[in-house]
Simulated assay, not measured.
Amino acid sequence: VVGESTAAGVGVAEHRQGLGAHLARALAHRHQNTVAWQIIGVNGIRALGLHRHLAGRPPADADLAVISLGVNDTTGVTRPSRYRQHLTDLIGTLRRNRPDLPVYLLAVPPMQHFTALPRPLRDLLGQRAAQLDRTQQTLAAQLHGVHHLAYPAIADPACLAEDGYHPSEKGYAYIADQVAGQLRPTTVSGAGADITRSP
């Protein structure tokens, strides 16, 4: 799992409470196997920055990659055409050693539901987030082995952290369970975790 604050687990105290750990557990349960997982998450990063970050230190070999991006590109007003190019470059970096690596793009969160944001700002950001997510959907439809993951609908306020912006542990667990049902790993093997969480 690579990406911004959601990948980094902002909103919870420990990585075992975050998206990557919950996703690994959900996959292990579904496939009755041990899952090795790696998180590279940088709070506040955009697609271009993550591509540059990974270019110097590509992640370990994997059976699949999940990308969680878009919020910072939304607030940073990245144009959809640039966002598409940055994502394409990022996918290329992830596939440097394995051109057929399955890549899953987690939908850009619906920012109109971020209670920490006042209206009408959150409605405007919600529209921009949806625009970038449509860019992701188009890219997934055009690139072989790239898939778009719908963002799980979250109605329970307990799924948001105290900051009203990031998921809580309950939110991460729910998102992970929904995402796990959409992933199609060819193999699930190995054990342990290699974690990078940048502030």
Rank of each mutant, 00 (worst) to 15 (best):
G3M: 00
E4L: 00
E4F: 02
T6I: 15
A7R: 06
A8G: 07
G11Y: 03
G11V: 04
G11H: 02
G11D: 05
H15S: 10
R16N: 14
R16S: 15
Q17H: 14
Q17Y: 06
Q17P: 05
H22S: 12
L23P: 06
L23K: 01
A24D: 08
A24F: 03
A26N: 04
L27V: 08
H29T: 15
H29V: 14
H29D: 15
R30N: 05
H31S: 12
H31Y: 15
T34D: 13
I39H: 06
I39D: 05
N43F: 04
I45F: 02
L48R: 15
G49I: 00
R52A: 11
L54M: 09
A55G: 08
G56R: 13
P58H: 07
D61H: 13
D61E: 15
I67W: 00
S68D: 09
G70S: 07
N72Y: 06
N72R: 11
V77N: 14
T78D: 03
T78F: 07
P80I: 08
P80E: 07
R82E: 08
R82W: 06
Y83D: 02
R84D: 07
H86D: 15
T88D: 14
I91N: 03
L94Y: 05
R95F: 03
R95Q: 05
R96C: 06
V103H: 07
Y104M: 11
L105C: 07
L106E: 06
Q112N: 07
F114V: 10
T115R: 15
T115S: 14
P118A: 10
P118W: 02
L121Y: 08
L121S: 04
D123S: 12
L125Y: 02
L125G: 02
L125S: 01
G126S: 08
G126K: 03
R128E: 03
A129H: 03
R134S: 13
T135P: 09
T138S: 14
L139I: 09
A140N: 01
A140Y: 03
Q142A: 12
Q142R: 13
V146H: 00
V146K: 00
V146G: 01
Y151C: 06
Y151K: 09
I154S: 12
D156C: 08
A158K: 10
L160V: 09
A161R: 10
D163H: 07
G164H: 12
G164Q: 12
Y165N: 04
H166E: 06
E169N: 10
K170P: 06
G171N: 06
A173W: 03
I175R: 04
I175P: 02
D177Q: 15
D177Y: 11
Q182A: 15
Q182M: 14
P185C: 05
P185V: 03
T187W: 09
V188I: 14
S189R: 14
A193C: 07
D194T: 12
D194E: 12
I195Y: 00
S198K: 12
P199W: 09
